[in-house]
Nucleic acid binder design. Structure first.
Lengths: 337, 337
DNA sequence: TCTTAGCACTCAACATGCCCAAGTGCTAAC
DNA sequence: GTTAGCACTTGGGCATGTTGAGTGCTAAGA
């Protein structure tokens, strides 16, 4: 059996199955693709492919369907990304119109991506680990309640209300703000914990207590600014591909709701040289996604944040990969401005 | 036919059907409930109920299932809220532990509510229409880029980056901030649009352009602080009650993703004297939810913001209503502190 | 007037048997 | 290495029969 033809057969099987959702047999294969050989030969090839675990038969007298491993080989060695249509390109470009703040851009982006691929789209907020502190603000809301605001040079603003424990005045706060600012202005958020202690120590004895509280508040803010968020769209697409999830889409929905899970999943996806990473079925570290595939890539500075889609293993990988890559590039461009 | 017994029969049908998901017939009914009459009598009553459109038969020789109208009557006149179990009460109370900022509280709340009811839970962010402006901040990020921060006395902080159009200095910004503050500090956010114009007019001629940009930025912030957001949890529960949605859960997921739709839906639900409002099946203004029911109530000051659950019309209304009410009350208490 | 027993009727769900088409593996010839 | 041919497997479609839960109606009883 010739190696190239074997791959060609696998490709044909994957494409037909993705298209028809039905196990594909040797005869149908030679009819739909001009492979230049007879069905008997294809049968032999298929037996080989099955031995290697690339395809499987649901029951004795049915055609074959690709396994996770088969999809993997298809993605890695056989398929080429399918260029987007003109209409799709236009849709991506028109995304720019009325682009507003980051939230708005990301929301439009996931919606677009989910429509382009007919899958669930997810996007991780841009990283800000290296963000530096630009500004802080203490605002007295009530005699003991202080609103602490932290502004990073990435433009991100975090706020939280803390209870000072004792009554403080506006003047106290102004003083404290100045002290804090001189101590930590411009520092990377990651260094905040170490920098705050000495600042508190230098404050006037009378203000030690509230200073400590405020420091803890800032610390928490820096922390929550480091922690990550995501956004998604197109969950209704899961209902359409209901049949593709043998059990139910329940576990997938659960996974999507657990942002922690999704974020870890996205960030664990190693960067592929081709620019788009694919994780297929059981390759996924999370059990609930064992029937699903993830197509993702990085975007933004250093491609550090991730964007991608999630769908059944039986998906159109070439198109999905192309769409994810195109959208990610465009997103990088918009945010880079 | 006695009126009370007719209601009793409807109650029995609803309860059995909700429990078993199967059309319930006259014989099964007299067996499971001690109604003191024979199945023939029940048959007559059922014929009456069907005439009134309260129940329907999927096909000739099957039992009956409640219609939307039947559920409505059940909810309005028959059922009493089922008191929560001790374990459930405990779960709600333990919600308080580690309560953090508003986001955190709301997130815990929806998760809890979705677990209690096995449905999708949604909560609208507390209103802040009457919020007043407490503070504004202009921060120079780059020669022309200014971060505009708006802080309301409700503790809400909104921010956005605007392009000043021309280079501005830190001093310019300090000056502008002072001008703006004196003009609008303490004003209700709703009045901002009218108040901003005169403030801009009073600025030095050289700073007119950036002042106008900043004013527009503040205006937008006030607007987006007025506009509403929501949070949800438990979408995976929809997959479980898949069978209950004749077509598919797709339309429901779509509705849930359209926050605008959901927010309008929630706010349009008239307040019921009993404290919890129910909207059943086709009563819902949104087509995608014609197979779903919404159980919601207000919480917080003036019960202005809404919290509720969404599930199939075939749901356990008494339990759902009790859970929603209990959680809403508790949420009000936490936020009121 | 309401209730009930009895009865004829309906119909989805299930079972059974049958056949067919698609598909497979294997063998022998090219 | 390829192919034609063939025996074999098996799920799906179809026609047919059976069952049981359920109904509506009627006529008799309280």
């Amino acid at each position: 059996m010739s190696e190239p033809r074997k791959l060609e057969v696998l490709r044909a099987i994957v494409e037909d199955y993705v298209h028809s959702r039905e196990p594909v047999g040797s005869k149908a294969l030679v009819e739909r693709h001009h492979l230049g050989v007879s069905s008997a030969t294809i049968r032999n090839d298929m037996a080989l492919l099955e031995e290697e675990g690339l395809i499987a038969a649901p029951h004795t007298s049915a055609g074959r369907i690709p396994t996770d491993k088969g999809y993997r080989l298809f993605v890695d060695r056989i398929s080429a990304m399918k260029p987007l249509s003109a209409a799709e390109r236009r849709a991506i470009h028109s995304l720019l119109e009325g682009a507003d703040d980051v939230d708005d851009i990301l929301e439009r982006t996931v919606r677009l991506l989910s429509q382009l691929t007919n899958q669930v789209a997810v996007v991780q907020y841009p990283h800000s680990t290296r963000a530096k502190l630009r500004h802080i603000e203490f605002v007295l809301l009530a005699p003991r309640q202080v609103l602490v605001v932290l502004i990073a040079d990435s433009g991100k603003v975090e706020q939280r209300v803390v209870d000072a424990g004792v009554d403080v005045s506006d003047e106290d706060l102004t003083l404290l703000r100045a002290r804090f600012l001189s101590g930590i202005s411009g520092a990377p958020l990651a260094h905040l914990p170490q920098l705050l202690a000495p600042v508190v120590a230098l404050c006037p004895p009378a203000l030690q207590a509230p200073a400590a509280v405020l420091a803890r508040g800032l610390d928490k803010l820096a922390e929550s600014s480091r922690d990550e968020r995501m956004m998604m769209a197109g969950t209704a697409n899961l209902a359409r591909s209901n049949v593709d999830f043998p059990l139910s889409i329940g576990p997938v929905l659960e996974a999507l709701e657990e942002q922690v899970v999704m974020l870890r999943l996205l960030s664990e996806m190693a960067e592929d040289p081709r620019g788009v990473t694919v994780s297929i079925g059981r390759e996924n570290p999370y059990d609930g996604l064992s029937e699903a595939s993830v197509v993702a890539t990085g975007y933004g500075p250093g491609a550090s944040a991730k964007i991608g889609i999630i769908g059944p293993t039986r998906m159109d990988y070439p198109s999905s990969m192309a769409a994810v890559r195109a959208v990610a590039r465009y997103l990088s461009r918009i945010l880079g401005s």
